[in-house]
């Protein structure tokens, strides 16, 4: 890897009071500026993995390096957290203020940033997440998708290099999910942020640069979405299923059609099939 920004070295973790390990020897390096999706059933360790990325949890053994900084170094915890913005599942439980822009200002205020600079960052973060027109609204009156975008704005205001989203869409309706996922992809593609998206929804992973599947505290699969989804036996075993596009492409290929494996977005998949049918005719 050319320029890894997150590095896990043989990370083990056991929750206090538990007997079983939640992470059993994870080795992982994530490339700067890439979009990594993480799938896995409940209890597979994917949230535990996420919480290691900003020192909410530190390894029982092994180490995690963020931009070269060891997360176990207590003196540098703020350094780590400033670099890694975390967004969680329940939008209500991560908004601290009664007015959207005051909430977005919370992190830079904690970091002791100058007032005029905070103002600039808050406005920029709200613009990036498309929430500028709601800056004076009360968060509890927003939709779920809007609340999550406020939460994203709230961490972007720290100007982090990495954005980690831990099942940010689990409590949202389809429109809200799309808002949040589109925002995450845009931050990666247009702003060069490294994004780690933890999710249950296969279709949120199809455009990722890399897809990880977690199982029993280890990484069970790691590769491009097309490659991972093509291993149907694995996906079945992990109780995950496969996106419709991948399923259809595989079935058609199995029946002898010349189709690529990696056109997993709806448009691309339709285009590929249409072309194949035309050439055959």
């Amino acid at each position: 890897m050319l320029n890894p920004v997150i590095v896990f070295e043989n990370v083990h973790y056991t929750y206090p009071g538990d007997e079983l390990e939640s992470l059993c020897g994870v080795d992982l390096a994530i490339e700067r500026g890439s979009f990594v999706a993480v799938l896995g059933r409940n209890g597979s360790g994917k949230s535990t993995l996420a919480k290691h990325m900003n020192a909410i949890l530190v390894p029982t053994s092994g180490r995690v390096l963020i931009d070269g900084i060891d997360t176990a170094d207590e003196a540098k915890v703020l350094e780590v957290r400033r670099r890694v913005g975390m967004v969680f599942q329940n939008p209500d439980n991560q908004i601290v203020a009664n007015v959207v822009e005051d909430d977005v200002a919370f992190a830079p205020e904690n970091l002791g940033v100058e007032p005029t600079e905070i103002r600039r960052r808050v406005d920029a973060a709200l613009a990036l997440t498309g929430m500028s027109e709601y800056s004076m609204h009360a968060p509890h009156l927003l939709s779920g998708g809007q609340k999550q975008r406020v939460a994203i704005a709230g961490v972007i205001a720290m100007e982090p290099e990495i954005l980690v989203l831990d099942e940010p869409t689990a409590m949202l309706d389809p429109l809200g999910r799309k808002e949040v996922v589109d925002t995450a992809y845009a931050l990666c593609k247009a702003r060069g942020m490294t994004v780690v998206l933890i999710t249950h929804h296969m279709d949120e992973c199809v455009d990722a640069d890399r897809l990880l599947v977690m199982s029993n505290g280890s990484i069970a699969a790691d590769g491009s979405p097309a490659a991972v989804f093509s291993d149907q036996a694995l996906m079945e075993r992990e109780g995950l299923g496969v996106p419709e596009t991948a399923r259809l492409l595989q079935a058609l290929r199995a029946s002898g059609m010349a189709l690529p494996e990696d056109r997993l977005d709806t448009e691309g998949c339709a285009e590929a099939i249409a072309q194949a049918i035309r050439t055959e005719a």
Partner: peptide, 17 residues
Amino acid sequence: AMESRCYHGGEGRTRMK
């Protein structure tokens, strides 16, 4: 969530407004 956003008490906090 607050810790993740670098909250560490009142020490050294600034205010936007």
